[in-house]
Design a protein around this nucleic acid. Structure first.
Length: 581
RNA sequence: GCUCCUGUAGUUCAAUGGAUAGAACAUUGGUCUCCGGAACCGAAGAUCUGGGUUCGACUCCCAGCGGGAGCGCCA
């Protein structure tokens, strides 16, 4: 029989099955199997302790009964420890068998597929047109891309939608500045997007200084939203210019979207939101605006969700409702995931509450809604890096600096390399470093922007993982073998390094599960780093190229599996690898 | 004022209520007859404070202190 892919779930099932017949455990028992500290075994089940407490049994006795009920197997040794932990240690033969079964990129993916694929829309990146992307946009883009890859890898139908901010107040401000300066949008100079941003900044300061300018900017927005052809033509040009600069960054980062339906796409769908919500009595007029209150909520009973401003214009609450409706109706989305800054948590909570009532009233299936929020990138002053004042770091500059630094290192270590190859490797290494730096920490934490942190290339970084990959490739080159070659003579792991590495490889499914379940890529990062560390230790302790065939085949198998796992895992983070670096 | 997030080595980060809190950087001592030193092995160093719940708390609850965010027409 083939070993199970996810050993944690397999042990859990085994325990549940045998607990049924045991008095004091029964069908309610939850084993709580998890990866164990290596000192105690490979997996541990803690569930007996709390369960025994509830049913008034002795935890150790109960755990002993459970252990006794499990028929002995050559796969695991099972022992009771401490107050009632059950520890499982895999046999070397079992570790070998698992590694022979789930080694390459294809078997890993096949085994990782969910049995219940969903249609999931991911809403991420979502920059505002007319502004350049700055470091503040990096998180949504990278986290969203990684989650898209993760969910698609598990077999879900993923729809990536870049919900551009292309219809908001900033256009009123921008159009005002364009008019005031008499700017020709067809002749913006060599860096059109930067020019637009300057204009925006100018408009912004005008609006701040004078109420009449503010009124004019608002009028311009209403004008645009009502479809004035002249305004629309300008708006389209601005949008096109912006898209070119966005695409440049996306292609660098290997980010792609299935759709880029910005807020403007929903401009003729907002009317229906007003009428429908009004018809169902979900919204009400208040101070001239159309708002939604949630009386059952301690805060949103008084804090309104404004869906139409008093000047008649829509806002992002309106478009978000219309967008959700569209995603459900047109794309059949069963889940929608929004990847945005944590400061928007109130907005999304209100959006979800409103959507629930609205969809119920319309008798329409409500997709499950998740707000995947992340912490703010802070400046030196511990305040959010902002576009409006000061000098935010442009995203393109950050990416180019990363490549520049990587390029220096590559050249230093490989003086004989041509420029094109240096550049190719530098992109993989530099951009990988940035990605890993961002994705490897819990997304909900804020962090202070620091070049050296985002661009670190030693220690727990992408280049360290890429280095492990390159070393393995190097071994295969020397052996004149392919990682895909069958290693049927491999013996079971014996040395400590072999065993630890073989074990670590079996933990990939759990890391994947956790990252997908919590929509947090850093769990995958942690696992991959630990795997690479185990590999490096192994590499230093046990030589792969040895005379004894069985030993060499095992070690080649381990190398091959580490390679497949690292390439797969890094790929899910959006990080590429190299055969030589 | 109300609500939410947050506080772990010098620094940056980990740790689904489980056993002796893991790493990286920096500091420091080793490893080069080595399949790539962007490496490996070792040392030192931490849970804001005070209560509580629990067999067991970085984790849950309460209070305090510190940091940050959101709270009516920005997104």
């Amino acid at each position: 029989m083939l070993p199970s892919f996810n050993l944690c779930s397999a042990i859990d099932l085994l325990l549940v099955r045998h607990a049924r017949e045991i008095e004091g455990l029964g069908p309610e028992f939850s084993p709580q199997t998890r990866v164990a500290d290596e000192r105690f075994g490979d997996f541990q089940a803690n569930g007996v302790l709390p369960h025994a407490k509830k049913t008034g049994h002795s935890p150790r006795e109960l755990a002993q009964k459970l252990v006794d009920a499990i028929p002995p197997s050559s796969d695991w040794s099972i022992e009771l420890a401490g107050p009632g932990f059950i520890n499982f240690t895999a046999s070397p033969e079992f570790l070998l068998s698992w590694n022979l079964t789930y080694g390459n990129v294809d078997t890993l993916q096949e085994a990782s597929r969910t049995e219940e694929p969903l249609t999931i829309t991911l809403d991420f990146s979502s920059p505002n047109t007319a502004k350049q992307m700055h470091v503040g946009h990096i998180r949504s883009t990278l986290i969203g891309e990684s989650l898209s890859r993760l969910l698609a890898y598990r077999g879900h139908r993923v729809i990536r939608d870049n919900h551009l901010g292309d219809w908001g107040t900033q256009f009123g401000i921008l159009l005002l500045a364009i008019e005031e300066e008499g700017v020709d949008l067809d002749n913006l100079g060599i860096d059109p997007i930067a020019r637009l941003e300057d204009l925006y900044r100018l408009g912004n300061s005008m609006v701040k200084e004078s109420d009449s300018c503010l009124a004019r900017a608002r009028a311009k927005l209403v004008d645009l939203q009502e479809g004035n052809p002249e305004s629309l033509a300008k708006w389209e040009k601005i949008r096109d210019i912006s898209m070119v600069s966005f695409e440049n960054i996306y292609s660098m980062l290997g980010v792609r979207f299935d759709h880029s339906l910005g807020e403007s796409f929903y401009r003729d769908k907002v009317e229906e939101v007003y009428t429908s919500l009004s018809r169902h009595g979900i919204c009400q007029e208040d101070d001239g605006a159309l708002v939604v209150f949630h009386p059952e909520h301690k805060r949103f009973a008084k804090q309104p969700f404004i869906i139409r401003k008093s000047d008649g214009a829509s806002n992002y609450a309106t478009t978000d409702l219309a967008t959700l409706c569209f995603r459900q109706e047109e794309w059949g989305s069963q889940q929608v995931i929004y990847v945005t800054d944590g400061r928007q948590r109130d907005h999304f909570e209100q959006l979800f509450l409103t959507a629930k009532k609205w969809f119920e009233a319309e008798d329409r299936p409500l997709p499950s809604l998740s707000h995947v929020w992340f912490g703010t990138i802070l400046g030196e002053d511990n305040k959010a890096i902002k576009t409006r004042d000061g000098q935010p770091i442009k995203l393109i500059e950050l990416l180019e600096e990363a490549i520049r630094r990587a390029s220096k290192m590559v050249r230093q270590k490989n003086p004989e390399l041509g420029d094109a190859e240096v550049e190719r490797r530098a992109r993989v290494i530099g951009l990988g470093a940035i990605r890993y730096a961002d994705l490897s920490q819990d997304r909900t934490l804020d962090y202070v922007f620091a070049w050296d942190k985002l661009l670190a290339m030693q220690g727990n970084t992408a280049p360290y993982l890429q280095y492990a990959v390159a070393r393995i490739h190097s071994i295969f080159r020397k052996l004149e073998l392919s990682p895909a070659d069958c290693m049927s003579f491999a013996r079971p792991p014996e040395t400590q390094a072999e065993r630890k590495l073989a074990r670590k490889l079996t933990l990939f499914p759990m890391a994947l599960d956790q990252a997908t379940r919590e929509l947090k890529p850093h769990f995958l990062c942690t696992y991959l780093y630990e795997l690479a560390t185990e590999f490096s230790s192994f590499y230093n302790q046990d030589k792969v190229m040895v005379d004894e065939r069985e030993t060499q085949e095992l070690r080649i198998l381990l190398c091959s599996n580490v390679l497949a796992t690292l390439i797969t895992g890094l790929g899910l983070l959006g990080i590429e690898t190299l055969e030589e670096m």
